[in-house]
Amino acid sequence: MSDRLSIQNELKELNSPLSGQVPRMPYAVPTGYFETLTGQVLSRIRQEEVDDELASLAPGLLKTSRQTPYALPTDYFKSVQIPVTPSAPVVPLFRRTWFRYTSAVAAMLLGVTIWLNQDAPSGTTGSAGAAVVIQYKEDLQKLDEGQKDLLQEFVEAGMTGEETAQLEKSPALQASLLADISEEELTDFLEQSEPITSSTEMNN
């Protein structure tokens, strides 16, 4: 027998007018009371913990008002407007110009090394070159699709191993290569390279 039924039977036996009635509480509770109760209680608990700690450390401080005595201009918080500065655009690492050039140069140097080793007489560095090619192919296979896309992007930047190899040899070629790069891109590259230079200097 359920508790409710048992209570109803009990009331029936006592011939009470409450028998057969559903208990209802007429009192009202403020809206949202039960949603905020936990927060209020936890806040009181934290305050009591701070008070207890203070009572053991410096009981005299408990009697001191915790109100900050500094005055504020009237309606300060209503009138204050915090200027919102536009946040700097976030450029992914592989989209940064300096990173693209550095990566392209590294990839081209690797390509030139492989090419030089392939042309070497057989029995000398040829076998070493073949080993590098095999290693290179293996490394390529290990790349995931995302990394392959990035590599493709570097290649599409318009530079080849040949250009890089000749870059240091011919100032004229260097000038012609740089002619394809806008002033803005060069400035951007130099600006973005600054921290690296500084840190290199610091390390040195």
Binding site: V29, Q40, V41, R44
Partner: peptide
């Protein structure tokens, strides 16, 4: 959250007013 409503109503029926019930309930929970 599990017991707050049952405890609240038990207290409210005895002390009648909501503010008093709230004070008592908070003391209970502490």
């Amino acid at each position: 959250r599990k017991y707050q409503e049952r405890l609240y109503w038990h207290i409210r029926r005895l002390v009648v007013g909501h503010d008093d019930a709230n004070d008592v309930l908070q003391n209970v929970l502490i």
